[in-house]
Design a protein around this nucleic acid. Structure first.
Lengths: 350, 350
DNA sequence: TTGTAAGCGTTATCAC
DNA sequence: GTGATAACGCTTACAA
């Protein structure tokens, strides 16, 4: 009951050989129906379970994929991981998760560990601090599919799944313009990161299209937390002419901005409209719900997983797929002028 | 550069045997310093990497643990997973995550899959729908450490890490009583689950200690989402005498309750004080911050991991450890009467 | 100190 | 259709 049952045990019991048992278990055509059924029956009786590790050694496929993110417990990443898991589990893959804490050294160590563990693929979001790429090349050299999601490294021959941050920034800004705003501030994250640059570019493009002059004073670069939002709001308050809208590259800074403005008696959205980015859960729980750009995280995970599967299915050909998902602007209370009744109908609580 | 380097390749190059190489690599004392250094040097030159799968087959230890939760992207679970990962990764373990979607069948399937994959341990939170326990016993029969966190099955010989939900319920209710409330409603989740029963019991105990009669009308059982909070508030509004406080077993229902009450012109916390449970991130982002009971999720994960490690370190002895962490009441704005200035000082924004 | 050989549990390639 | 044997990459008695 307790011992590990191998195909040898079944073979011994049936006085046949392990090879035959293996054939029966794997529906190999070169076997008689009689023995096949007998083996199957006996295997069930003896409670045989295939040892996947032995299979992995033999076949060179572990059926494990490594997923690397900065922090598992950020809603953005955990939702992506959920998407990955739900796409891969039915295909027989297990998902190994690892965290980098945004540190390049941990990222390197983690990748090497995963390679040693013989993972069949690596799906990851690059750490903020990462500047080198030898560790990525080590993955490619072993012909292990590598798929980036959200944050990618500039590397030839690697697939990636991102959202169209440019479009997200454009849509958010355009929406604010449609609300009648013209002095639109932008709070961005570290512009060394592609995602923040793209949102910024989208912002500028929307302004340009509307014939609104770009004003450097209205752009503030900060970290992506609530405190930075307070800071940003204070900077904006120093200006001669207060903006009438804020597009923030982060929901947390958007929240901070709203809080600080409220302290100063500024009414949102009447005086200033605000749109955030990421559709963090809290944005729709607030008393004043916050407009935001949804990044379809689960979908991003699912797509990343599918890109991996496609590469696995076609090992001979090198697939370099750059998928760009379209983000979705969710218009909520923080950006809709209360006196605009027609627009009010479009407010989404989702 | 591209080929897989094994110890045989190193052996061949140095005209020694694989056994010697293995010994050198593993700091086996039975080897001369000279060959040890030579092997090490050559291994590095040839870019040798140990194949963990081969090691796993040989040793019977995969250095993988399975972690099973209902949904990965719930903040509660993803934080626990983070705690587990951070405790286990430095010890050389990889964390495989799986989701049950609260379905018993998936839980069973997942456990069997993990066992086939030869995981060294299973850390999990039991699905809501689970009623049987043969699948848990299958784990135990193989002498694989099984550790429950938060939700456990009634099973002999299994370790678990939970929080003291009774204490959490007691503290929350006691706090409301200290605020001068006496008609305290309780919104609970499915009482078939131990965690909700315990919180409920803690609630009743606090009432009893304060000499407040238990009133069945003030107890409403619902699901744990915002809509259920709306429903619960409506039920309470039907009562002849409105409660002056609400202790909710869920932050989401607490939010729903607050929203619905506000719609009816009821002031929080002036008219009704509210305390939730779980310390969901949004509770401290609200304009009116919501008091809640923190479940020290990261710590729960870390402790669960340590319990697993302890069992691994002592394979001969059967360890049954029931760890109960103490939850922490976080008093925020939703439960502190504004005219009570002394208490106001204790308001936490954390 | 080093070599030899067996074994972990499978599957695949030969023969018969 | 079935059996014997090698191989995946590693560790470890047992010999030498």
């Amino acid at each position: 009951m307790n011992e590990k049952i191998t195909i040898y045990d079944i073979a011994k019991r049936l006085k046949i050989t392990a090879a035959t048992v293996s054939r029966a278990l794997n529906n190999n055509p070169k076997i008689s129906e009689a023995t096949r059924l007998l083996v199957l029956k006996t295997a069930k009786e003896m409670n045989y379970k295939q040892n996947k590790v032995a299979l992995a050694l033999k076949s060179g496929k572990s059926n494990n994929v490594g997923v690397i993110v900065p922090y598992i417990n950020r809603n953005f990443f955990s939702s992506i991981i959920r998407g990955i898991e739900e796409e891969l589990y039915p295909k027989g893959y297990h998902v190994i998760i690892c965290q980098t804490h945004e540190e390049e050294q941990k990222e390197i160590k983690t990748i090497d560990n995963l390679l040693n563990a013989q993972v069949d693929g690596v799906l990851m979001s690059v750490s903020k601090q990462t500047t080198t790429s030898e560790h990525f090349e080590r993955v490619l050299e072993k012909h292990i599919p590598l798929v980036f999601f959200d944050r990618r490294a500039q590397l030839k021959g690697v697939s990636s799944v991102t959202i169209d941050d440019y479009q997200g920034g454009f849509d958010a800004t355009k929406h604010l313009i449609d609300q009648g705003c013209s002095r639109i501030a932008h709070i961005c994250g570290d512009l060394k990161l592609e995602i923040y640059r793209d949102r910024f570019e989208g912002y500028k493009a929307a302004l340009k299209q509307a014939g609104i002059a770009y004003n450097e004073d209205y752009v503030i670069q900060t970290k992506s937390d609530t405190e930075s939002g307070h800071f940003a709001a204070q900077e904006l308050l120093k200006l001669d002419k207060l903006p009438d809208a804020v597009f923030s590259s982060s929901d947390h800074t958007a929240l901070g901005v709203i809080q600080k403005f409220k302290e100063h008696g500024i009414k949102i959205p009447k005086d200033i409209c605000v749109v955030g980015f990421s559709n963090e859960p809290f944005t729709k729980f607030m008393e004043l719900t916050i407009s935001s750009v949804d990044q379809c995280t689960m979908e991003m995970g699912r797509v990343a997983a599918r890109v991996f599967l496609e590469q696995v299915k076609n090992p001979k050909i090198k697939i370099e797929k750059k998928v760009e998902l379209t983000p979705q602007l969710l218009v909520r209370e923080s950006s809709v002028k209360v006196n605009d009744t027609t627009k009010k109908l479009r407010v989404s609580k989702g």
